[in-house]
Nucleic acid binder design. Structure first.
Lengths: 168, 168
DNA sequence: ATAAAGTTTCAATAATTTTTGAAAGTTTAA
DNA sequence: TTAAACTTTCAAAAATTATTGAAACTTTAT
């Protein structure tokens, strides 16, 4: 396969993966484009390469900055803003994990904790089942939370070394 | 908080979490409802409790069966079909991990492997950057895949015991 | 101060995803 | 075989989400 075709295929695949995981397709595609680009790119270049509007490009770039996945760069003597992506895949994974933990896991944990204080008739099967489900989910969510916490702090080699060693 | 209110809140929270992770809201809500229900429920009961149409309920129930999260039950002497959810949260997590691995991770791994055979000029920065990104993503995806594979086979206590022990 | 270069905003529009509901299909019992 | 009970399908409608593009805004250089 040629480079040009491979790039397109990668951008498409990354976009699809993103959309299956609740990240909007364009955002994932812009990220893909910057990830495989050795140089920082301008809004114009991104608009052109992905055939998207200025407004869309601008909002998407701001979102990506908000996720900590790309940064602005200013070139000496130029007005234009350039954008580039962190190329370290482990950093990317951590950044995504961090944001989703904050935005999605934590609010749910909060609600689960509230729900575990529910009170009712200890003889009622409805009540018993409810309490048990909440308790079990809480426990699992707590484990996931702890593991993510560790992952956020870890060096890649240490993290996978430790995790995979256990599994051999 | 009272049981009735807590149930509603749980169904809502589970639905929201689902939709943030690419699982349709109704599907997550039906799952939530069955998860906290001590008895198997009929399509009618589900329709009524969640205020959804028959068509929606039917499709959603079939999807949930396809995901291995709920099962049909037939009560002796009755025509109606009843549905109940596996209450074991670890089984649920594994089931979801298994399906998403199959539906989403595996197709991406396949494409990444194709892309890693790209050929071009070893002096071209575009080519160098592309190859390195693909290689790094491939490595990470491989680690994720291995970990999921282990999780799918593992007992809950063994899995978290091993993972969390490493992190203390 | 002003105009060129560049960036941001957001209401309108388009695209996608989900839901409905009625018709078609199936199963069971008499 | 018939009809009641129940399930499935799917085209149309509704709801949600993403995108456009033009106007407003900001910054810089002269």
């Amino acid at each position: 396969m040629e480079l040009a075709a491979a790039k397109l295929k990668f951008i498409e695949a990354w976009g699809k993966l993103g959309s299956e995981w609740g990240i909007n397709r364009t955002m994932a595609q812009v990220h893909a484009l910057l990830l495989i680009s050795p140089e920082a790119l301008t809004t114009e270049e991104i608009m052109e390469q992905l055939s998207i509007s200025r407004g869309n490009a601008n909002m998407t770039l701001r979102d990506l900055i908000g996720w900590g996945l790309i940064e602005k760069q200013h070139k000496a003597g130029e007005r234009k803003e350039y954008f580039f992506a962190d190329k370290d895949v482990w950093n990317i994974a951590r950044q995504v994990a961090k944001e989703r933990k904050k935005r999605e896991l934590e609010p749910v944990l909060k609600i689960l904790n509230e729900l575990s204080t529910v009170n009712g008739d200890e003889k009622d099967p409805e009540f018993i089942t409810f309490k048990k489900s909440i308790k079990d989910i809480n426990k699992l969510a707590g484990n996931v939370d702890k593991t993510l916490e560790t992952m956020l702090k870890a060096e890649e080699s240490w993290f996978w070394g430790s995790v995979l060693k256990v599994f051999k």
